[in-house]
Nucleic acid binder design. Structure first.
Lengths: 377, 377
DNA sequence: CCCCGTGTTGAATCGTGTC
DNA sequence: GGACACGATTCAACACGGG
């Protein structure tokens, strides 16, 4: 029984195991079952999302959206997806060390099922972490809110495990000396970082940004730890693990992904740890929505706004728009329409009255922004 | 059978129903079952998620769950919570109108179970929305990320329901003319807004901020809609609904919460009607037939139309169709055929020439609309 | 070299009314 | 209920080419 002997060898010498820093080809449950139990420090998993798309979607310029319609994302039903999820999570739990933790990323299509099954299997959720995208795809038809985030679940192997790794101090130091929050802001993976094939097409439809993986690994692993990714894809987990001095194991079914990931990882040079602060530092100044002044109680619905020479006045409405006669819209649009300009900066155009004096609503924006900055927006 | 007669009365006259703008005392499932079916536009639910502390979990058969905090009993606890969740969601779904939507808020302790059950019951998730807290409670022990957000699930009653309310134009205008995203930033409820009892203690442990409810209701309801909150608590939903000119129904078991909520809501003054008017986009405008531009003399038969870059030109015919070579048809169809697109908005595609400049025929459409409005059409 | 305008793209559960 | 016509709808980032 060569397979069994092989498994025995691994469980006796996991530190020098020949599966470290390699990509195992095959079905993820089968490959997981070939690994020794309790051999992995952290698992990062980006499973299929079960998107359930129907028909095509076009942008307003009539170009077609390149949907994720790959075979690996097709499931017959919620029950089929649940069975798949249960199987790989169970196999993943076996290879996790008692103090190991697991990260799973998903969207509203699948993450609730994944989270419930994780709880059912005995995983203990430590945090759910929101990846806020700086540049998400718009909602082209204007039928919902722009889907601007994805959710990650971070969990320990079981409730009693208190010895998991969390690098609290380095997270806090990287976040201007305040605790790292559960909402993280990163761009999606584009530009040179995005792997392209010889035709210029993307190698993988859902490549994750390295900055996201860097924060995951910096927060919950130590140098030399073993990081497993059972849905390796284009190998972002492996590339970041190598760069940060961690060991990786990838599992992937599709040969084209394996080839691309292997070539990518070969190019990676391990880094000194100091470069990390660039990846985890704060991002751009937050934009403040006019409606947030109403939310914050800085302006009341029904309040009057004036331009600086009181030529026009307009009324604030509860939905965050302005109205002046039969003209209505955003603060910018109404300002432009009244002046018959193409555009107008409503923040500097509009003023509110206080003790008989006009004060720019931009002052209110500064107040609102101050609150937002403290939130690490 | 007085109970049944009562129910009949309600279903015959929901508009003047005596349960509108009241708080129903009792178990949430029982109270929901006393309401007429398909009578509610939007549900906002903030269900309990404390698995051990309160004995308020009931199985569908109304038997009380024996709350336990032993670790080995987590499976039993999850199952009991699932049964409770399934029961109230099912009852809530019955009272929801076919085009109604539901919001449920929760944290990682319960939201994954809630979301999975919602999908199992046939709700169709439209968005998950993240409430990012500007001032969350710190993680005192430094063992995890600061839990700085809560998750809301927004779902329609079933997948085929496309007619749900989403005030896209309001949301966009209120957000500086870019789409409202799925991550919202608000402070937690503190200060004067937080209800306190005579001892200065907080009335309710998880009172939600009114700004959060205001955005929920402004985005997904219209004035006069009926908003149901099956876990009414301190009555934030009712207070905001009343202020925004919506009707509410609350369900609450605990008398102290009912008393506090009733007093709170009585103090609320509804906003003036003008402040409640909402921005509507082109979708809400009346249809204008292209031929009516010719009827009104705004365009002459034989006039030439051009696309914005003058790649194509077409001739207006007396019957309200366009002709370009051997291509003829509606303004939309000709635009689509010329560009080889599946569809085309002819109103924004075609322009007429005036003093050497191209002007969109959409301008003529708004002139025609104004004329029609003034004529009382 | 930079600047600017143009074009492309990203895990998407993305109509409605009339005949 | 099905077919068909109407016509509404996008944000940030990056690549590329020309000046």
């Amino acid at each position: 029984m060569p397979a069994l002997r092989h498994l025995d060898d691994l469980s006796h010498a996991p530190a020098s195991a020949d599966w470290l820093n390699t990509i195992l080809k095959g079905d993820c449950v089968a490959a997981l079952n070939r690994l020794p139990e309790k051999s992995v420090d952290v698992i990062f998993a980006d499973p299929p999302y079960n998107l359930q798309l129907e028909g095509d979607l076009h942008r307003p310029d009539q170009s077609k959206v390149d949907a994720v319609d790959d075979e690996w994302d097709q499931f017959e039903s919620f029950a089929a997806y649940d069975a798949f999820t249960r199987a790989w999570l169970l196999a993943a739990r076996r290879v996790l060390k008692p103090n190991g933790t697991i990260w799973v990323i998903g969207s509203y299509h699948n993450i609730f099922r994944v989270g419930a099954i994780m709880q059912d299997l005995g995983f203990w959720i430590l945090n759910d972490v929101i990846w806020r995208k700086t540049n998400p795809m718009p909602n082209f038809r204007g039928r919902r809110f722009q889907n601007a985030h994805e959710t990650m679940i971070w969990a320990s192997r079981d409730p009693k495990a208190k010895g998991y790794t969390f690098n609290y101090d380095s997270m806090k130091a990287a976040n201007d000396d305040v605790q790292m929050r559960s909402d993280w802001l990163f761009p999606i993976c584009t530009g040179n970082e995005r792997l392209k094939d010889e035709h210029g097409d993307k190698v993988h439809p859902t490549q994750k940004p390295e900055a996201l993986l860097a924060r995951v690994l910096m927060s919950s692993t130590k140098p030399g730890d073993v990081v497993l990714d059972p849905f390796f894809g284009s190998g972002t987990t492996g590339a970041v693990a190598k760069r940060l001095g961690r060991n990786f194991v990838g599992i992937e079914r599709q040969q084209s992904y394996i080839d691309a990931a292997r070539a990518r990882i070969a190019e990676v040079k391990p880094l000194e740890v100091q470069a990390l602060e660039m990846l985890t530092g704060k991002r751009a100044e937050p934009r403040v929505a006019f409606v947030s002044l109403i939310d914050a109680g800085l302006l009341q619905p029904g309040a009057k706004l004036y331009d600086s020479r009181r030529r026009w006045s307009a009324q604030v409405r509860a939905d965050g728009t302005l109205a002046c006669g039969d003209v209505a819209g955003s603060i910018h649009k109404v300002g432009a329409l009244l002046q018959n300009f193409e555009s107008c900066n409503g923040w500097t155009f509009w003023n509110y009255e206080h003790n008989g004096e006009l004060i720019s609503i931009d002052r209110l924006r500064s107040i609102a922004r101050h609150g937002a900055e403290r939130a690490g927006a």
